[in-house]
Simulated assay, not measured.
Amino acid sequence: MQTSRSATSGRTGSSSGTVNGALRVRDSDRVDACAVLDAARADGQLAESEHAERARSAMRARTFAQLDAVLHDLQIPANLVDTPVASPARRRSSRRWLPATAVVVAAALIGMLCGWASSADGPVASHKTPDMTTAAGIEAFLAAYRAHFGDLRADEIVLHANTASIERPAANDPSKSERISYRGNFDSWTTTGREPDLQPIDLGKLDTPKLAALLAGAAQSVGAPGASISHVMIDRTTLGEGKQPAVTIYIQGPHSGFLMVDLTGEPLYISKAHA
């Protein structure tokens, strides 16, 4: 049977601060924090609403002190008691993180360069739809979208490598939602009802350079290095209240998970990879 212990036991430091609390956290630390929150929700320590609120705080945390504030009153699952989020003694000097940071930055740059290169491999490749789960593919899709519709408004976009599905307000009738498929061209196939007062998402607010880095490191962020992106969804999150626009990157392979961020690339939630 898996055991747990109090998140406060084994932590050193005074009430005014924690050991190494000022150190910056990594994506893997945020993932571990969300795993603690998921366990706390599963065993009744947290209600669904409080879990969602704390998960948002964990994903926005920049330092261990901020993560400590989210987890301080929770019991820690046995498999996480030796992680940096639960054990300050395991928090390393920021200097030792520099090589890892360099690898992440390099991976993001390589991801962007490979995406751009894939759309410029010669006359044949230039006529193909770029992989829309890459930054270059998303930029090409948005350019085609604007050229076709004259704007960048949408209620929902689902991007696969070679195809996309779209929901957007019907022309001249915001009470109806037009459903459209895309594979190099746009094909409208049905309309449904929608909330007429719902403000569409402005795709022009997407921070594509930041998104490029997130796409390149998404598999690593969810704990599934080597896995691939199955699809990217742009819609309104159901986490908490407000239904803010969000981008969700889904990872599929031997293990699957997802990373959710807002349009500017700020993290909202990570679902750790599982078989």
Rank of each mutant, 00 (worst) to 15 (best):
Leu74Ser: 04
Leu74Asp: 07
Leu74Asn: 05
Ile76Val: 15
Ile76Lys: 04
Pro77Asp: 10
Pro77Ser: 08
Ala78Ser: 14
Ala78Asn: 12
Ala78Lys: 03
Asn79Asp: 15
Asn79Gln: 14
Leu80Met: 13
Leu80Trp: 11
Leu80Tyr: 10
Val81Met: 12
Val81Ser: 08
Asp82Gly: 15
Asp82His: 13
Asp82Lys: 11
Asp82Tyr: 10
Thr83Lys: 10
Thr83Met: 12
Thr83Pro: 07
Pro84Cys: 09
Pro84Ser: 04
Pro84Asn: 04
Val85Met: 02
Val85Thr: 01
Ala86Thr: 04
Ala86Arg: 01
Ala86Asn: 02
Ser87Cys: 11
Ser87His: 03
Ala89Asn: 07
Ala89Ser: 12
Ala89Arg: 08
Arg90Phe: 14
Arg90Gln: 14
Arg91Lys: 03
Arg91Pro: 09
Arg91Ile: 11
Arg92Thr: 10
Arg92Ile: 14
Arg92His: 05
Arg92Glu: 11
Arg92Phe: 10
Ser93His: 13
Arg95Tyr: 09
Arg95Lys: 06
Arg96Glu: 06
Trp97Pro: 01
Trp97Gly: 15
Pro99Phe: 00
Ala100Leu: 15
Ala100Gln: 12
Thr101Pro: 00
Ala102Glu: 11
Ala102Cys: 09
Val105Ser: 08
Val105Asn: 05
Val105Phe: 06
Ala106Asn: 02
Ala106Cys: 01
Ala106His: 00
Ala107Gln: 04
Ala108Pro: 00
Leu109Thr: 12
Gly111Cys: 08
Met112Gln: 14
Met112Gly: 12
Met112Ser: 15
Cys114Ser: 13
Cys114Val: 15
Gly115Tyr: 01
Gly115Pro: 04
Gly115Leu: 01
Gly115Ala: 15
Gly115Gln: 03
Trp116Ile: 05
Ala117Ser: 09
Ser119Asp: 05
Asp121Ser: 14
Pro123Ser: 13
Pro123Val: 15
Val124Cys: 01
Ala125Glu: 09
